[in-house]
Amino acid sequence: MNTILLDLLAFGSVLSGILVITSRNPIISVLFLISVFVNVSCYLILLGINFIGLTYLIIYVGAVAILFLFVVMMMNIKLVELTEVNQKGEYTNTLPLGAIVGSLFLYELAFQPVPSSVSGMSSTIYNLFDEINLLSVNTSFKGTAFNSAGIEAYTSFNNLWDNAFTSFQQLESVGSSLYTVHMMFLIIASMILLLAMIGPIVLTHKPTKRLH
């Protein structure tokens, strides 16, 4: 019961994902894609990774999904050709293969006993909901202990103990690693983005009069 909101969001994203690939109209597919993005973004924000969650919202929904929507609108997909798909047996001939491949994939990768280093994550989630404080990163849970005088004393443990010395904002910490240690990634990623800008221009603009 502690993780009800997270489970709901996870279930919502999976449901939206299924509806993306089974929708008939591509515009509805893109809308469910936006729903997937929003669900995953809320999931991340709820876990406390608020910078990345908001980045998801801005970049994925604000740029990528809008781009998809523009292109889908531009494609002028006629609904006539959409209903030509064989309605009766639309999925029956591909669903068994999908079920087999999907179950193999999930067996190998998903529902495995995780190594102990990763399973610490679930305890963090439970801790978060012991003291529901959705807006802050610092989490704490209370424990009771009896000291030697027999007096009940509350001890409080803070998960993020090094906050006592200095605390970085989330964006600060990402930036400090992004620009110093891993700066080569930034340079290559900037070349990729430059290419992504030039590429569609090269592919789609009407050529002006050029020398040959």
Binding site: A10, S13, V14, G17, I18, V20, I21, R24, P26, S29, V30, L33, V36, V40, Y43, F68, V71, V72, M75, I77, L82, V85, E90, Y91, T94, L95, L97, G98, V101, G102, F105, L106, L109, A110, F111, V114, V118
Partner: peptide, 28 residues
């Protein structure tokens, strides 16, 4: 981690078992 594996699986299934249009492949 289970969530991301299930979402990846949905993406792959949408890519492969797709008979509708090509936009769906990009979305997957």
């Amino acid at each position: 981690m289970n969530l991301s594996m299930v979402l990846f699986l949905i993406g792959i299934l949408g890519f492969i078992l797709n008979r509708k249009n090509i936009i769906l492949m990009l979305i997957s």
